[in-house]
Each structure stands twice: as C-alpha cells, then as structure tokens.
C-alpha cells in the first residue's frame, strides 16, 4: 500500500487509478455496448439471470481466489461443486430438507479441503498434482452417485423458490413488481454480497488478509514472524472446498436437478474470473472484489454475445473466454512487473 501512496505523491495517481480500476471501466463499457446494441439486454429477466449466475459463480470461486493469491492453485473446485450438487440433490430427492442436506455437503467439503490442504501444505506435494487427483476423484464419485446422468428433483422445496425469487417479488406487492431493473435483482445476490463484504473485510482490514498477501511475496518472512503459515494455507483449502460445495447446492436448487458433469463449464470461467480479477484493486494479486468484477465481465460478454447472435457454435464462446484469460494473465503479469520496477526505484 505504501508503494501506492508514494506513487500518488509523484503525480502518478491517474495511472494508478487506471491500473486499479481500469477493469471496472471495461465492465461498464461492455454493459453500455451490449445494452445499446441489444435493448433486450436490460430486460428484467436478463438482469435476473446475469446476477444470479454471477452470485453462484462468485460463491464457488471466492475461496479459490485466496488460494491463487498465495501463489497456489486448486483445480478441484468445480468437481467439488459437482459432487455437492449431486449429493444434495440425491438427499433432497430422498425427502431430506435442504438444511440437513447442506450440512452433509459441508462435512464432505471439509474433508476434501483438509485432505487437499494437508497433502499440499504439510506433505509438500505439488498443488496442481494433488488437486488434479482430487478433481478426478470427486468428479468420478459424482458420476457414480448419479449413475452417469443427471436426474430431476421432484419436490425442490424452499431453496429452489429462494433461488428464483427477486427482490421485487419478495418485498413489493402488486403487479409488475419484478419488472423494474431494481426489482429484478435476485435474492441470492444478497448472499453473494454478504460473502463478498465479509471476504473483503477479512482480506483488507484484518491481519488474516495481510498474511495471505505477504506470503506470496516472502513466505519465509511470514513464517519467521511467527505465523503458522501451513495451518493458514490448510484453512484456505478448507474454505475453498466449503464455498464450492455451497455453490453446488445452490445450483442444484436453481435447476432442480442433480448434474454430475455440471462443474466442467465453471472450470475455465472460474479460473478466468480469478486471474482477470487480479487486475482490480490489488494489481497483479487475486482478490475477492476483482474476482466479482471478473465474473461479471465474463457473464456480460457471454450473455451479450449470445444476444447479438455471435455464438453460432459452442466453440466461439470457449475461444472468447480463453482469449480473455490469456489477455488478463498477460496484463496482470505486465502490471505486476511494472509495479515491482516502480517499487525498486523507491
């Protein structure tokens, strides 16, 4: 942070602002572009679906964000969500309540997180290798449990209603309450907003956040300062697994199905959002606010491109996402190296 202040003093404030919030401007520009070219883009139903998808994706990858911030990676988040999705769908189908099903899913998530975190941080195995294994393991379990195909939930219950309710429908009575832009905001956004705010507070205002970002720069120093870095990193993996599992349950409720292969589409999206997000606020470092911006950009681009009829086949969407990820990573690396050069000058 001190580097930023000194840069401001030197009159670099505009450049700094551009670097820190440039992606936000890109998001606004994209919204304006798609909104002006395709009027249905601002239709309440489209706003609801964009914000709902963004909320669920954010909950899935907010834990991953901090793992990436410490310089590690977890590629098992999407199959964790898929397993949680199938387990909760199966239990609800058996007549359980969502709350009890969610508790079971949380226990599974905790076990997965502890195993991942222990193997990586205590036994020193490669993060990528361990999480490729757990990703395949969990994906395989999800497929086995669902017998290879998706299945419907006959009585989806209150959580499903919650997922499909907007603020307008919940708080304003009368006809057409959900038809305004504000009224179209889905309730689940509130959950994501709370998660975002708490995460932001932990990350920016507590020592917990300092430890996360300090160890990426100098692991030894944080260790020597008396922080139990291993335990902290293990907890990050547990947190990531729990949040991915939560998203899996929400998706089961939203689509009223258990889909063992649902996670695959979140794999590239999630990682792209996290890495793209490292261009916001903390330049070159993954952070929760940036992840939210990254997710919104991705969803706005894919919904907007679909509305304008650009996506004549599935492949184009994939290529756009891959291109954004490549561009975002390149910019992040560039920004980070420039910042390092700048701090060396001081």
């Amino acid at each position: 942070m001190s580097a930023d202040i000194s840069m401001e003093n030197r009159g670099y404030w505009f450049k700094g602002l551009l670097e820190r919030y440039g992606l936000l401007a890109v998001l606004v520009a994209l919204i304006v572009f798609f909104g002006s070219n395709e009027p249905t883009f601002f239709a309440p139903i489209n706003i609801t679906s964009i914000l709902r998808a963004a909320s669920v994706t954010f909950i899935m990858v907010c834990g991953l964000t901090w793992i990436v911030a410490t310089g590690k990676i977890d590629v098992s988040f999407y199959t964790m969500a898929a397993l949680a999705n199938v387990v909760s769908a199966t239990l609800v189908q058996l007549g359980w309540d969502w709350v009890t099903a969610y508790l079971v899913v949380l226990v599974i998530g905790a076990v997965v997180g502890i195993v991942n975190g222990y193997l990586i941080n205590y036994l020193g195995l490669s993060d990528l290798v361990v999480t490729i294994c757990s990703a395949s393991f969990l994906g395989s379990l999800a497929l086995m449990l669902a017998d290879g195909s998706s299945f419907g939930i006959e009585r989806p219950g209150w959580l499903s209603e919650f997922m499909h309710t907007t603020f307008g429908e919940a708080f304003v009575s009368g006809d057409g309450a959900g038809a305004t832009a504000i009224g179209a905001v889905p309730l689940v956004l509130l959950v994501a907003a709370i998660v975002l705010f708490v995460s932001w507070y932990l990350q920016e205002r507590l020592t917990f956040g300092h430890y996360i970002y300090a160890q990426e720069g100098n692991y030894e120093a944080v260790h020597e300062a008396g922080v139990n870095v291993r335990r902290l990193n293990l907890l990050l993996f547990v947190y990531s697994a729990l949040m991915s599992a939560t998203a899996g349950v929400l998706i089961a409720a939203e689509f009223k199905t258990g889909q063992p292969t649902m996670g695959a589409s979140y794999f590239v999206d999630g990682l792209t959002a996290v890495f793209l997000g490292s261009l916001v606020l903390r330049v070159g470092q993954a952070n929760v606010l940036g992840t939210m911006v990254g997710i919104l950009i991705l969803i706005v681009v894919s919904k907007g491109a679909a509305a304008l009829g650009w996506l004549s086949n599935e492949g184009i969407g994939e290529m756009i996402k891959g291109g954004i990820l490549l561009l975002g990573t390149g910019l992040a690396v560039f920004a980070q190296s420039r910042q390092r050069d700048a701090s060396q000058e001081v």
Binding site: N313, E314, G315, I316, E318, K321, G322, L325, V333
Partner: peptide, 23 residues
C-alpha cells in the same frame, strides 16, 4: 519469452484451441 505463468496460460490456450476445434 513473455513469462506468463504456465498453468493459467496452458488452461487459456487449451480453451482457445478446444474452441477452435468447433470451426
């Protein structure tokens, strides 16, 4: 040469060429 991180870069390139296979 551009010093991008290997894991993310290859995921991105994988998505691009995987998408290109639809062409």
């Amino acid at each position: 040469y551009l010093r991008l991180p290997d894991i993310v870069t290859t995921i991105a390139v994988g998505a691009v060429v995987g998408g290109a296979s639809y062409w």
